[in-house]
Amino acid sequence: MKVLTHNMMACTKKQCMGKGFPLGVECTESITLEQEFNYEFVKNIIPKLDWKGIQLIGEKLAITIPPFTEESLLDQEFLKSLYHLLCNVKIITGSLICPNCQRVYPIEKGIPNMLLREDEIYQDVRE
């Protein structure tokens, strides 16, 4: 799971709609990729980013990004380090935690498992 993916995610539970993000992060293993910096790409995704989420995951990965300001868009160094964090850092093992219901979703082999159990989806159904 790349950091950019985390920035788009939320808890899957209906009760957490609008409240289940940013997901808390635990990381025990991560890797660094080497994709080339893409200026247009990073410039265009900035309006969609949740800076609170970036702060939160950055802390866990010990990568600090300076606060975003109007001038940041012209700051090549800022954009490069932002791109690096979003697209080149990948969590391999760890977990995601909903800030609303505390549900823990595991990340294994780089893949978050966001699937709810049957009894979580159909908790009201008695058979």
Partner: peptide, 30 residues
């Protein structure tokens, strides 16, 4: 929803996660 498919995607260096199509793990209007 199939874990094995996401493993295959991951091997190809694509972003993939396991989720139910009816309960997507993403924020709204994004």
């Amino acid at each position: 929803i199939c874990n094995n498919f996401t493993l295959i995607c991951n091997d190809k260096h694509h972003e993939a996660l396991v989720a139910d199509g009816l309960l997507l793990p993403y924020k709204s209007d994004l």
